[in-house]
Design a protein around this nucleic acid. Structure first.
Lengths: 399, 399
DNA sequence: TACACCTCTGAATCTTCCA
DNA sequence: CTGGAAGATTCAGAGGTGT
């Protein structure tokens, strides 16, 4: 691991041709003031130079460095450029210029959930990483994702058979459930990655403005290099790339023009802290306490699903007496009284004055007095249907 | 709804300045190959004339049209351009030129799950839509989504304030009790949208190469326009934009240079929109299909699921008078009477003497006489809950 | 007009508490 | 003591407000 201080343009001169397996960079973006619009009537002939406009300086800056980066890359090497939303199109053109359009591999979308704000418009929740290789024979380790994470993929993994008309259909067992394929290889990683944003509470955080999650870099490094390979980050900032490289047994060279960045990086390399994302490790589904079946019963209702809370499955968006309206769906094998108890407890802590319990199981009749006034009970279709069958059965003794 | 045949450059001249609220376009992509796709029965063939010799020619082609599109847009209007991965950076530059970089609103990422393992590298699974507005005061209807699974909604409901050190803490009243927030709407929609790719088997599919899911268009239209507004699609293709616009009560103008596209669009607009309507409703409830939704309501019932379009969703294993007991779940956007009619018809052919209808929508009260004796109606939780809210609202005039 | 400061916000962690 | 659930905390980014 080497961390060099200075402008990477100069520092790169010391790096040998074709010596680096992978490059990751998150170049600084110069925010320049907007340029004026020219004639919009379309009368004038279109010129490509216009597109560059005032960004010429920045383009030049990056272009020079990209040329060097291309030079030091091995023929099996790849480059990953992390882009600002305002500059990605610019960087893309430069990459096409330096690496060639044929060497474009992927436009990786890193997306995440984030705090919202009152912005008018869509909440920005992704960043772009361009992936180019130097030649067509580039190092690439295919990575598979767990297919169980996504229900859509489940469908793809369903076993197929032919129906009576000879059409391909999904195979189903006697219960009508789909049968899954045996293959457990998983789904090849796509170019859309959900990786949690570096959380405000994460210990991994070192306070650097554009700090990236180690998990993001790990994925890139594992994908494009093998252990022992050399990785270069010409704008290393807080040094996440090098930390990830070290954790994965790769070599690394970092460069930054700022003293602080270089110091920070060296410090982090001595004692790398990586917060294992609970979310990523266990998967989103591990948080779900309000199970799918329960929420399905509430479909169409204007409600907020509630997880991480045993007593309730949802809160209505509507309020009652300025207090939340809680909803619980009776769970299988749970007595009605137990349901009422759990819901009552939740209602108390949330000072709710109106709660709704969806009864899903037929039960012993319980006295009205055992139901708190603030709890209303509604019946799942199943319960009502069974009641109907029971009633008609009495009249009409045929099963 | 108007569908015009011809090059949109010419056709746009007929459109008044500042008369359109939103524009969606999916311009022909820059590819060397021609898009050709046979209709499923092989009878018809669609083709694009999208052989652009070089980038410059393509850029010029698009630039001229963008200038006109900018002109016809109202000052509160927005434009959405659907981009191919190979051309998005180019289109982005053109938009900056014509609309101005300050009018960039979002880079929308539409992603979907796919299955393929043929390629070395990452599986492409997204497309980009650029969202620019004409001015800063653009029409925008915020849409809300669920909170993340890892979010403790319970906490979100509590009001917060700052303590003496300026740290954020929960607000408490004099008794030390937490103060609750007003009702929450959820999280504003982000710029990353997961929308399933058009299933090759979907009925929606009409055989046009780049057809987009109607759900995608629905989201854009609802976001950027209000009912009665005018929407323009200068490369309307199979007409999904216009269909979505019509279903949402907006006006629309479509243009396409191909006879096939214009005919197809007109056909889709004239034809009963029922299929589209169903699909539109289907998409509204995140990822559950109408089938699954219906089954969810019937969970735990000892029944045999039945394929759709036969008036029924399930047949109970139990019988009544040695005849099957049929179950139908009222579909979104379907009136109760319509449901009864469909179920009755099915009951007749199956000579069922007892059928059950699960009412999922609140409805006008209908007289008992309109319900055949053999049909029993049960209520989905949603209906019962709305009734409770209605009743308590009357007693307790606080929302 | 320009700018500093305050307010509001949701994700996902960290911390505490309880059985 | 331990594991897990419930509760608390932090940050960044946009808008609003006041000087």
């Amino acid at each position: 691991m080497k961390v060099l201080k200075g402008d990477c343009l100069k520092l790169l001169e010391q790096i040998q041709d074709e010596s680096v397996e992978a490059i990751y960079l998150d170049p600084p973006f110069f925010t320049e003031k907007t340029h004026k619009l020219k004639n919009r009537d379309g009368s004038q002939e279109f010129s490509f130079d216009d597109l560059w406009g005032c960004h010429k300086k920045y383009a030049e800056f990056l272009y020079q460095r990209l040329v060097h980066l291309h030079r030091v890359l091995k023929s099996s090497g790849s480059i990953f450029i992390h882009c600002d939303a305002t500059a990605n199109y610019l960087i893309r053109s430069l990459l096409n210029e330096v690496f060639g359009p044929d060497q474009f591999r992927s436009e990786i979308i890193w997306y995440y959930k984030r705090w919202s704000n009152s912005k008018k418009g869509l909440l920005p929740a992704h960043q772009t990483i361009y992936f180019y290789s130097k030649t067509d024979s580039f190092t690439f380790n295919t990575r598979y994702t767990d297919y169980s994470e996504s229900t859509n993929v489940d469908q793809i993994l369903q076993r197929r058979s032919r129906d009576s008309q000879g059409k391909t259909v999904y195979a189903r067992d006697e219960q009508g459930e789909v049968i899954l394929n045996d293959s457990k290889k998983g789904v090849p990683l796509s170019d859309v990655w959900e990786i949690p944003y570096l959380n405000p509470k994460a210990k991994e955080r070192v306070g650097y403005p554009t700090q990236k999650p180690i998990l993001l870099l790990e994925r890139i490094i594992e994908m494009a290099t093998n252990p022992g390979d050399l990785i270069l980050d010409p704008f290393c900032g807080s040094g996440t790339t090098l930390v990830a490289a070290k954790l994965l047994g790769r070599h690394g060279i970092g460069m930054d023009i700022s003293d602080d960045a270089v110091n920070l990086t060296q410090q982090r390399l001595i004692n790398p802290i990586k917060t294992d994302s609970n979310l990523l490790q266990k998967g989103r589904n591990s948080y779900l306490t309000a199970d799918k079946e329960a929420l399905a019963l509430l479909q169409g209702l204007d409600s907020i699903p509630v997880h991480r809370n045993k007593g309730i499955d949802a809160i209505l968006k509507q309020q009652f007496n300025h207090k939340p309206i809680l909803v619980r769906v009776q769970k299988p094998g749970e007595s009605l009284l137990e349901s009422i108890r759990l819901l009552s407890a939740a209602a108390q802590t949330k000072s709710s004055q109106l709660s709704i319990l969806v009864q899903t199981q037929q039960s012993e009749s319980i006295s009205e007095q055992m139901i708190p006034a603030s709890i209303k009970i509604v019946h799942a279709p199943l319960v009502q249907i069974k009641q109907i069958l029971h009633d008609t059965g009495k009249d009409n003794a045929v099963s």
